[in-house]
Design a protein around this nucleic acid. Structure first.
Length: 263
DNA sequence: TTTCTCACA
DNA sequence: TGTGAGGA
Protein backbone atom coordinates (compact mmCIF):
# COMPACT_ATOMS: atom_id res chain seq x y z
CA UNK A 1 0.00 0.00 0.00
CA UNK A 2 1.51 3.27 -1.15
CA UNK A 3 1.69 6.22 1.20
CA UNK A 4 1.64 8.72 -1.70
CA UNK A 5 -1.52 10.07 -3.29
CA UNK A 6 -2.66 10.84 -6.84
CA UNK A 7 -3.31 14.28 -8.23
CA UNK A 8 -7.07 14.06 -7.76
CA UNK A 9 -6.65 12.99 -4.14
CA UNK A 10 -4.31 15.91 -3.54
CA UNK A 11 -6.74 18.25 -5.28
CA UNK A 12 -9.63 17.06 -3.10
CA UNK A 13 -7.50 17.27 0.04
CA UNK A 14 -6.39 20.83 -0.63
CA UNK A 15 -9.60 22.04 -2.21
CA UNK A 16 -8.06 23.09 -5.53
CA UNK A 17 -8.56 21.87 -9.07
CA UNK A 18 -6.44 19.15 -10.64
CA UNK A 19 -5.76 21.65 -13.39
CA UNK A 20 -4.35 24.13 -10.95
CA UNK A 21 -1.91 21.61 -9.49
CA UNK A 22 -0.64 20.80 -12.99
CA UNK A 23 -0.40 24.51 -13.69
CA UNK A 24 1.84 24.96 -10.62
CA UNK A 25 3.99 22.12 -11.93
CA UNK A 26 4.26 23.76 -15.34
CA UNK A 27 5.48 26.92 -13.60
CA UNK A 28 8.01 24.88 -11.60
CA UNK A 29 6.65 25.53 -8.12
CA UNK A 30 5.26 22.10 -7.24
CA UNK A 31 6.80 18.90 -8.58
CA UNK A 32 5.34 15.46 -7.80
CA UNK A 33 7.36 13.17 -5.51
CA UNK A 34 7.68 10.75 -8.44
CA UNK A 35 5.90 9.44 -11.53
CA UNK A 36 4.25 6.04 -11.14
CA UNK A 37 4.71 3.29 -13.73
CA UNK A 38 1.53 4.42 -15.47
CA UNK A 39 2.95 7.99 -15.68
CA UNK A 40 0.55 9.19 -12.97
CA UNK A 41 1.92 11.91 -10.70
CA UNK A 42 2.30 10.81 -7.08
CA UNK A 43 2.49 13.21 -4.13
CA UNK A 44 3.78 12.78 -0.57
CA UNK A 45 3.44 14.83 2.64
CA UNK A 46 6.24 17.12 1.43
CA UNK A 47 4.11 18.21 -1.50
CA UNK A 48 1.08 18.68 0.75
CA UNK A 49 3.06 21.18 2.84
CA UNK A 50 4.51 22.82 -0.27
CA UNK A 51 1.09 23.21 -1.84
CA UNK A 52 -0.33 24.77 1.31
CA UNK A 53 2.53 27.31 1.24
CA UNK A 54 1.93 28.04 -2.42
CA UNK A 55 -1.77 28.59 -1.80
CA UNK A 56 -0.99 30.90 1.11
CA UNK A 57 1.36 32.98 -1.04
CA UNK A 58 -1.24 33.12 -3.82
CA UNK A 59 -3.76 34.39 -1.28
CA UNK A 60 -1.26 37.14 -0.45
CA UNK A 61 -1.25 38.07 -4.12
CA UNK A 62 2.22 36.75 -4.95
CA UNK A 63 2.37 35.83 -8.68
CA UNK A 64 3.03 32.15 -9.34
CA UNK A 65 6.17 33.14 -11.24
CA UNK A 66 7.60 34.74 -8.09
CA UNK A 67 6.57 31.95 -5.76
CA UNK A 68 9.36 29.65 -6.88
CA UNK A 69 12.00 32.24 -6.08
CA UNK A 70 10.16 33.11 -2.92
CA UNK A 71 10.12 29.52 -1.63
CA UNK A 72 13.72 28.77 -2.48
CA UNK A 73 15.52 31.95 -1.49
CA UNK A 74 13.45 34.15 0.86
CA UNK A 75 14.87 35.00 4.28
CA UNK A 76 12.69 35.35 7.37
CA UNK A 77 13.00 39.10 6.93
CA UNK A 78 11.83 38.98 3.35
CA UNK A 79 8.79 36.92 4.36
CA UNK A 80 8.06 39.52 7.03
CA UNK A 81 8.21 42.27 4.42
CA UNK A 82 5.99 40.26 2.13
CA UNK A 83 3.35 39.86 4.84
CA UNK A 84 3.54 43.56 5.69
CA UNK A 85 3.10 44.47 2.06
CA UNK A 86 0.07 42.19 1.78
CA UNK A 87 -1.39 43.69 4.92
CA UNK A 88 -1.14 47.17 3.40
CA UNK A 89 -2.86 46.05 0.23
CA UNK A 90 -5.60 44.31 2.17
CA UNK A 91 -6.20 47.42 4.27
CA UNK A 92 -6.43 49.49 1.09
CA UNK A 93 -8.95 47.03 -0.31
CA UNK A 94 -11.01 47.14 2.89
CA UNK A 95 -11.03 50.94 2.62
CA UNK A 96 -12.11 50.75 -1.01
CA UNK A 97 -14.97 48.41 -0.11
CA UNK A 98 -16.02 50.58 2.83
CA UNK A 99 -16.18 53.61 0.55
CA UNK A 100 -18.26 51.61 -1.88
CA UNK A 101 -20.50 50.54 0.99
CA UNK A 102 -20.98 54.16 2.07
CA UNK A 103 -21.74 55.18 -1.49
CA UNK A 104 -24.37 52.47 -1.88
CA UNK A 105 -25.96 53.45 1.42
CA UNK A 106 -25.99 57.06 0.32
CA UNK A 107 -27.58 56.25 -3.04
CA UNK A 108 -30.29 54.19 -1.35
CA UNK A 109 -30.89 56.90 1.24
CA UNK A 110 -31.02 59.70 -1.34
CA UNK A 111 -33.32 57.68 -3.55
CA UNK A 112 -35.72 57.05 -0.67
CA UNK A 113 -35.53 60.71 0.23
CA UNK A 114 -36.17 61.72 -3.36
CA UNK A 115 -39.22 59.49 -3.68
CA UNK A 116 -40.80 60.77 -0.49
CA UNK A 117 -40.11 64.44 -1.15
CA UNK A 118 -40.00 64.97 -4.89
CA UNK A 119 -41.86 68.07 -6.05
CA UNK A 120 -42.67 69.36 -2.58
CA UNK A 121 -40.92 72.22 -0.81
CA UNK A 122 -39.00 71.77 2.40
CA UNK A 123 -36.93 73.87 4.72
CA UNK A 124 -33.72 72.02 5.39
CA UNK A 125 -31.00 72.79 7.86
CA UNK A 126 -27.63 72.56 6.22
CA UNK A 127 -24.30 72.57 7.97
CA UNK A 128 -21.48 74.60 6.46
CA UNK A 129 -20.50 72.96 3.19
CA UNK A 130 -17.10 73.34 1.60
CA UNK A 131 -16.93 73.33 -2.17
CA UNK A 132 -14.11 72.92 -4.64
CA UNK A 133 -14.37 74.71 -7.98
CA UNK A 134 -14.53 72.33 -10.90
CA UNK A 135 -15.65 74.16 -14.03
CA UNK A 136 -16.65 77.72 -14.80
CA UNK A 137 -18.95 78.23 -17.73
CA UNK A 138 -21.12 80.86 -19.35
CA UNK A 139 -24.67 80.48 -18.11
CA UNK A 140 -25.91 80.35 -21.74
CA UNK A 141 -23.86 77.29 -22.51
CA UNK A 142 -24.98 73.85 -21.51
CA UNK A 143 -22.60 71.27 -20.25
CA UNK A 144 -21.25 68.97 -22.94
CA UNK A 145 -18.66 66.23 -23.16
CA UNK A 146 -16.14 68.42 -25.01
CA UNK A 147 -16.36 71.07 -22.33
CA UNK A 148 -15.65 68.46 -19.69
CA UNK A 149 -12.42 67.37 -21.33
CA UNK A 150 -11.28 70.89 -22.24
CA UNK A 151 -11.97 72.66 -19.00
CA UNK A 152 -12.25 70.21 -16.25
CA UNK A 153 -9.67 69.10 -13.83
CA UNK A 154 -10.30 65.46 -13.44
CA UNK A 155 -12.26 64.61 -10.34
CA UNK A 156 -12.29 61.00 -9.25
CA UNK A 157 -15.77 59.47 -9.09
CA UNK A 158 -17.20 62.72 -10.38
CA UNK A 159 -20.66 61.44 -11.12
CA UNK A 160 -20.88 59.76 -7.76
CA UNK A 161 -20.82 63.16 -6.09
CA UNK A 162 -23.39 65.90 -5.61
CA UNK A 163 -22.55 68.46 -8.28
CA UNK A 164 -23.36 72.03 -7.22
CA UNK A 165 -24.20 74.57 -9.94
CA UNK A 166 -24.00 78.10 -8.59
CA UNK A 167 -24.58 81.20 -10.70
CA UNK A 168 -22.67 84.31 -9.72
CA UNK A 169 -23.47 87.91 -10.60
CA UNK A 170 -21.64 87.96 -13.90
CA UNK A 171 -23.78 85.33 -15.63
CA UNK A 172 -21.16 82.71 -15.04
CA UNK A 173 -22.12 79.35 -13.66
CA UNK A 174 -19.55 77.61 -11.55
CA UNK A 175 -19.71 73.89 -10.94
CA UNK A 176 -18.47 72.73 -7.58
CA UNK A 177 -17.93 69.42 -5.89
CA UNK A 178 -18.16 68.95 -2.16
CA UNK A 179 -14.92 68.67 -0.20
CA UNK A 180 -14.04 67.88 3.39
CA UNK A 181 -11.70 70.81 3.95
CA UNK A 182 -12.41 74.49 3.22
CA UNK A 183 -11.99 74.95 -0.52
CA UNK A 184 -12.79 77.58 -3.13
CA UNK A 185 -16.21 78.43 -1.82
CA UNK A 186 -18.37 77.59 1.14
CA UNK A 187 -22.06 77.56 1.79
CA UNK A 188 -22.92 78.90 5.21
CA UNK A 189 -24.89 76.80 7.63
CA UNK A 190 -28.53 77.75 7.90
CA UNK A 191 -32.01 76.98 6.72
CA UNK A 192 -32.32 76.34 3.01
CA UNK A 193 -35.54 76.27 1.04
CA UNK A 194 -35.36 73.13 -1.03
CA UNK A 195 -37.21 71.23 -3.69
CA UNK A 196 -36.26 68.10 -5.59
CA UNK A 197 -37.26 67.48 -9.20
CA UNK A 198 -36.87 64.97 -11.98
CA UNK A 199 -35.97 66.81 -15.16
CA UNK A 200 -36.50 65.30 -18.61
CA UNK A 201 -35.49 68.26 -20.77
CA UNK A 202 -33.00 71.01 -20.05
CA UNK A 203 -35.57 73.81 -20.55
CA UNK A 204 -37.87 72.46 -17.85
CA UNK A 205 -35.29 73.72 -15.42
CA UNK A 206 -36.06 77.39 -16.16
CA UNK A 207 -39.69 76.83 -15.22
CA UNK A 208 -38.80 75.00 -12.06
CA UNK A 209 -36.51 77.84 -11.03
CA UNK A 210 -39.26 80.42 -11.67
CA UNK A 211 -41.70 78.35 -9.62
CA UNK A 212 -39.12 78.11 -6.86
CA UNK A 213 -38.79 81.89 -6.60
CA UNK A 214 -42.54 82.46 -6.76
CA UNK A 215 -43.09 79.87 -4.04
CA UNK A 216 -40.49 81.59 -1.86
CA UNK A 217 -42.15 84.95 -2.43
CA UNK A 218 -45.60 83.56 -1.70
CA UNK A 219 -44.36 82.09 1.57
CA UNK A 220 -42.55 85.33 2.44
CA UNK A 221 -39.19 83.64 2.53
CA UNK A 222 -36.40 86.09 1.97
CA UNK A 223 -33.74 84.46 -0.11
CA UNK A 224 -30.15 85.25 0.67
CA UNK A 225 -27.34 84.43 -1.64
CA UNK A 226 -27.35 82.54 -4.89
CA UNK A 227 -29.57 79.75 -6.09
CA UNK A 228 -27.86 76.41 -5.68
CA UNK A 229 -28.67 73.69 -8.14
CA UNK A 230 -27.56 70.25 -7.10
CA UNK A 231 -27.33 67.48 -9.62
CA UNK A 232 -27.26 63.90 -8.40
CA UNK A 233 -26.48 61.97 -11.52
CA UNK A 234 -26.04 58.71 -9.63
CA UNK A 235 -29.79 58.70 -8.90
CA UNK A 236 -30.41 58.36 -12.64
CA UNK A 237 -29.55 54.72 -12.10
CA UNK A 238 -33.15 54.39 -11.01
CA UNK A 239 -34.72 56.41 -13.80
CA UNK A 240 -32.59 56.66 -16.84
CA UNK A 241 -32.75 59.63 -19.21
CA UNK A 242 -33.97 61.77 -16.34
CA UNK A 243 -31.79 63.95 -14.19
CA UNK A 244 -32.27 64.46 -10.49
CA UNK A 245 -31.95 68.04 -9.37
CA UNK A 246 -32.40 69.76 -6.08
CA UNK A 247 -32.84 73.51 -5.90
CA UNK A 248 -31.73 75.21 -2.72
CA UNK A 249 -31.42 78.73 -1.48
CA UNK A 250 -30.48 80.06 1.91
CA UNK A 251 -33.38 81.88 3.53
CA UNK A 252 -33.23 84.65 6.04
CA UNK A 253 -34.03 83.47 9.52
CA UNK A 254 -37.36 84.89 10.68
CA UNK A 255 -38.29 84.91 14.34
CA UNK A 256 -41.48 86.11 15.98
CA UNK A 257 -39.76 89.01 17.70
CA UNK A 258 -38.41 90.26 14.39
CA UNK A 259 -41.82 90.32 12.73
CA UNK A 260 -43.06 93.85 12.04
CA UNK A 261 -40.08 95.16 13.89
CA UNK A 262 -38.00 96.29 10.94
CA UNK A 263 -36.87 99.88 10.68
C1' DT B 1 -8.78 8.23 -13.81
C1' DT B 2 -5.16 10.60 -15.60
C1' DT B 3 -2.44 12.68 -19.20
C1' DC B 4 -1.59 16.15 -22.71
C1' DT B 5 -2.71 19.94 -25.70
C1' DC B 6 -5.24 23.79 -27.49
C1' DA B 7 -8.33 27.47 -27.03
C1' DC B 8 -10.23 31.01 -24.25
C1' DA B 9 -11.23 34.71 -20.62
C1' DT C 1 -3.85 32.83 -13.73
C1' DG C 2 -6.29 29.81 -14.42
C1' DT C 3 -10.61 26.90 -16.79
C1' DG C 4 -12.96 23.86 -20.28
C1' DA C 5 -13.07 20.50 -23.95
C1' DG C 6 -11.64 16.43 -26.04
C1' DG C 7 -8.84 12.59 -27.59
C1' DA C 8 -5.52 8.92 -25.99
Amino acid sequence: MKSEITISELARLMNVSVHQIRYFEEKGVLLPAYLDNNQYRMYSMDQVYQLSHILLLRKLGVPVQSIKECMTSYSTDQYGQLLNHSLKEINAEILRLQELQHFINRVLHEQKNFISHSNDYQIKWRETTYLARWIEMDSQITLNAKLLTEQAKSVPNLFESDLHFIEDNSRTITLYTETEAPGDFSLPSGNYLSTQRLIHEEDELEQVIEQFYSYAAAQSHVIQGPLILIERSYLSLFSQKQLHYELQALIEPTTHSERGNRS
